[in-house]
Design a binder for these strands. Structure first.
Lengths: 206, 206
DNA sequence: GTCTATACGCGGATAGAC
DNA sequence: GTCTATCCGCGTATAGAC
């Protein structure tokens, strides 16, 4: 890997890379197929040899993300992610939120693009709720287990999980992109995570 | 007002009404200008006599909303909204959240459309943060005042306010639209508000 | 002010040579 | 597999009669 990836990578990979970059810069909806091919140094027609549409490309990017994630999990100390986490413990809650935050930051292009696609699907599609629900499955599991252990919860575990996820992902969308948040980052990741952790753990009464 | 509004209202109003309806049903981005004129029973060309573009129409709808809101405030017992609210008090916090929730529900078309427009503007525009910040100004004021009173907060008031607003508005976008949330409403407004209030007030530890 | 008809451009998608 | 050239549909916007 001497001179970047260059043409070393295949066209498909080049298109993916270009797409990722453009998705963060201009957004998914504003990025046209021709923008992607041009940025990748390929011709328009070449695109369709690899993807039938822009949506298909995004699907592929999401699959890449999933594959990578499950691979990392397999090769690590997490056999299946210990389900006996106690989210009422500050360290564990923060670790959880930090992991989610990091994942979003590391995969910002795909995360942003997916969100844009969801919104573009329209309110009646129900995709917004679905995105929220599937993105907080783990959280919900932990909360349900805690609930079974007798710990009091602010409400239905699924709803609580969704609320927590809503806060985090919405903040991510507003603050993570470069140039967002009103210029140079106002808050560090640590500050944000500390604040959210405290707020979710003990609320305004602290 | 015997047979609905009918043609009694001017064309401009008819276009606005049609737009509002379509924005909730199909979404702002998916709604074409021709869809609006057709739903309003007018011709395509007539649209441009009243609005130069779809964005301008949305602006007009937002202004209508603002005018109405400030009018209601003037005619009521709120001279300027008592700034000495204590959000650490359960009743007051809930009332606040309920008011916000109700406003979003009552003006769902405009709220949804604005959000779609914000997302469509792309991540680098910073509009997402701006929307969040301006939508939580009151909240921030209250928190800053509480902070000045010596009450401990989970973090920077502006960030805390944004986090709270993020949770609420994101839940609204996922749950308020008809057909969202997986069919018939899983949770009542009261359940949702109770849950969010508790979560924000005392956190997971309850 | 409202209509019908139409022009225009953008972007998605394909044809066919190399 | 990649290219160039081109087609086509959709949606915006305008022209001009009524």
């Amino acid at each position: 890997m001497g001179v970047r990836k260059e043409k070393a990578a295949g066209t498909e990979a080049a298109l993916k890379d270009a797409a990722r970059q453009l998705f963060v810069e201009r957004g998914y909806l504003n990025t046209k197929i021709t923008d992607i091919t041009r940025a990748a140094g390929r011709s328009t027609g070449s695109f369709y040899e690899h993807f039938p549409s822009k949506e298909a490309l995004l699907d592929a990017l999401m699959n890449d993300l999933r594959d990578q994630a499950s691979q990392e999990l397999r090769g690590q100390s997490h056999p299946a992610h210990p389900a006996d986490h106690d989210l009422a413990d500050r360290e564990q809650l923060r670790a959880h939120l930090a992991a989610a935050w990091r994942t979003m930051r590391d995969n910002l292009p795909v995360v942003l693009a997916t969100h844009e696609a969801t919104v573009a699907a329209g309110p009646a599609s129900g995709q917004a709720w679905q995105e929220l629900a599937t993105g907080t499955e783990m959280l919900r599991d932990h909360l349900e287990q805690a609930h079974r252990r007798g710990q009091p919860l602010p409400g239905d575990p699924e709803l609580v999980a969704a609320a927590m996820g809503a806060m985090l992902s919405s903040l991510a969308y507003a603050l993570l992109p470069a140039g967002a948040g009103g210029g140079p980052a106002r808050w560090s990741d640590d500050q944000i995570l500390d604040t959210v952790t405290s707020l979710l753990l003990t609320g305004l009464r602290g």
